[in-house]
Every structure is written in structure tokens, then in C-alpha cells.
Design a protein around this nucleic acid. Sequence first.
DNA 1: TGTGTAAGTAAGTGACTACTTGCATTTCCC
DNA 2: GGGAAATGCAAGTAGTCACTTACTTACACA
Lengths: 208, 208
Amino acid sequence: MNYRDAILTAAAGVFAQHGFRGSTTRRIADAAGVNEITIFRQFGSKEALIRAAMQHLTESAGLATLPEIPADPERELTEWSESFIQHLRLRSSIIRKSMSEIEERPEMCEFASDVPRRASNDLCLYLTALKRQGRVTEKFEPKSAAAMLMGAIFGDAMGREMMPDVYPQPKEKAAQMYAQLLLRALGVENGTGKATNKQTKRSKQLSH
Amino acid sequence: MNYRDAILTAAAGVFAQHGFRGSTTRRIADAAGVNEITIFRQFGSKEALIRAAMQHLTESAGLATLPEIPADPERELTEWSESFIQHLRLRSSIIRKSMSEIEERPEMCEFASDVPRRASNDLCLYLTALKRQGRVTEKFEPKSAAAMLMGAIFGDAMGREMMPDVYPQPKEKAAQMYAQLLLRALGVENGTGKATNKQTKRSKQLSH
DNA sequence: TGTGTAAGTAAGTGACTACTTGCATTTCCC
DNA sequence: GGGAAATGCAAGTAGTCACTTACTTACACA
């Protein structure tokens, strides 16, 4: 039997709750149901274990994709935003812990920054394609717009736990609201809908 | 002589760099140029000291204000955003560390969440006032819009250090870009000009 | 001169930490 | 059934941590 995966999973869980310094080898061993020594025999050191756990996590993370050629921006961007905000929410603890390690263990953040980096790049490409299609009435920089949507999603995923009253309710609709706000900032016409029923559709979606 | 303030300042600095567990009383004492025992005599315990340091920080934080009655939305919102992003950037380390303590020391986050909570409330009131003035052509929820701008600013302030290539350049213009994108999402006219008649009608029809 | 207060020095306590060593046990594959 | 690899157990090492005790120094003020 090989406890490697159990240890990696336990390490990720303990790290998410207690951070690097709080992730004692004893705690991880207990969480994995394994003798503390097994950790050192398998991974050599606590630092190597945590690094392996982080890498294991980012490798197993599947990201939603945006089409190369936008067809229905509102639908596509909403779905992507919902998938992304859900991803971040499920990992909010570990993301907070990783971010707080920048000063002391910058290498560890390389792994953590991989997912948002790819997501940002995808989103940027999508917005650029939208622009090239001429479906945008406002001038904008794709990078700024992408950073804005990603920031809104990120802030919601990180902060709602701490200050639930600050963010839109219900939380399941938040991603959609951010996506729609962004599209309006860019002046994007709704892909499938007509201009005449645009407002009706929006007010329906925005009211609760 | 009373070393209280020196210790508080040193504690905040050490905490910002090393987090709670990494903030050893020895490190703090060294940073303050003080004997370790003085810390315990002044504050009783490490936890009480860190808590006092956090409180001291949030109390000394001055926030930019938004006018109760919007006059020049683009200028006002840009200036507010710039002031807010600068505030967050100067404190990004300590904010990251505080956020990562939610699981283990939730009381500490009460202090940290005070500033963004007030900022969000101010922004929300401002956007509501804009809406009531009828200078907005799109229907929107102030809370969602506020969360979006705050999130964009927050994400920029937290993430740029880790992934500078993801965010708009130069960083001094970022806040302005986010503010402008938001105003366009709400359909607010540029500068001091008012909305056109047609748009005003539309917004009146759509508002409840 | 005497007293109170803030600070320092030195030494130590008990608990915890990452990590090691030596040896016994289980499990798996051939 | 045997050998090798993985795992467990017990004990220990050297270091760090928050915090304490007991005593001393410096200074302000009356």
C-alpha cells in the first residue's frame, strides 16, 4: 500500500486550515492516518511535502474554457465566471494561506499563481476576440477589463466569508452579475438576443 | 519613557512579514529595540500584543470620502479609487496575513474587515445617490456594482505583486481604468454633463 | 532622601518542532 | 515461500517557542 496520495491530500487540508507554520508533521500524519515517520520517508522534509501537495493540487485543477470565437457573450462569460468563482470558493482557504506566504516562501506562490494566470490569459483572449468581431461599442483595454472581472470574482470568493453583507445576494447569482456588468461596460450587444428585448431581459435577470 | 508605540509599530511590521506564528516575541522585541520582557509586561501576551497592534493600525487609517451628492462622477470615483488602491497597496502584506488568519483567529479579522466594510458602504451610498439623480441609463444593483469596483481594486492591490503581467500598466492608471469601466457599465455620462433626455426616460422607466 | 515606575539582565520551564535511529512488522510480487 | 519494499513503534536530539521568576538599574518626582 502506498500512502502517498493520502498524505498529499491531508497536507493540503491541514495547510489550508493552519498555513505553513501551523502545518506540523504530526498534524498532517494524524489527518492522513499515518505514522509521522512515513511522511519523512516519502517526502524527505516538511517543506518538500507541502510543495508536492501544492503542485498536486494545481495539476488536478481543471479550468472552464472560453470559446476562441465568441458566439453568445453573455451566456459564455456568465458560465465561465460561475465556474471560476466556484473554483476559487472551494479553495478560498488554501488560496488565502498561499498568498500570505509570498514574503517567506515565494516559490510556493508560483504554483498558486498558475491557475489565475491561465484564467486571466483565457479571458483576455476572449475579450480581444470580442473586440475584433466588432461587437463592442466602447473603447477598452482587454487587460484592464479582464483584471476587473477577475478581481470582482476574486474579491467575492475571498471576502464574502468575512463580510457577507458587503456582497450581492444570493451568492449564486454574483458571478452572473459581475459578468453582465462587465459586458455593459464594454458595450457588448447580447449575442442571441435582439436589441429590442435586451432591456427586458436584463431587468428580469437583475431583479430578484 | 514608554516603549508602547515602538512595540506596536514593530509588531505590525513583523506580523506583516511573518504572520502570527512567525511573529515571535523575540523578533518583535528586536525590531522594537526593546527587551523581550518589556513586551509581556506591557501587553501580557503575544496574542494581546498583536491584537492591540491591529487595532492601532485600523484606528489610524484615514479613508478618502465620496461626496454625498455626486457632482462629477468620473473625477470623484477615480480619485476615491486611487486613494483606496493606494491604501490597500501600502498594506498588502498585512492584509494578506490577516486574511489568512480567519480560520484560526477570526476575532482578528474583525479589525481588518472594518476598513473595507466602511469603504464598501460609502461607495454603495454614492452609487445609490447617482441612481437617484437619474444620471444612470442602466438598471443595476448598487451593491453588485460596488462589490465589482472594490473587488477589482482589491484584486489589483493583492495580486499585482505576484503576477504583474496580468494587470493593466502602468499601475498608477489602474484605479482610474476600473472606475471608468464601472461608470460605463452603469451608463453614466462622462464629466459633469447630464444624461440625455432619451436616456433619462429610459432610466426612469426602468427604475422602481 | 525616599519611593514608585518602567525598563533591563539572567536563568530557566515545559511544551512543541522537524527530523533521526534502530528494529519489528506487514504487504506485495515473483 | 522468500525477498524487498513500505510501514509502524519507541525513543531520542537539538532547537525554538511563549512565558515566568528573581533581581537590578535608571529616572522622575515629592
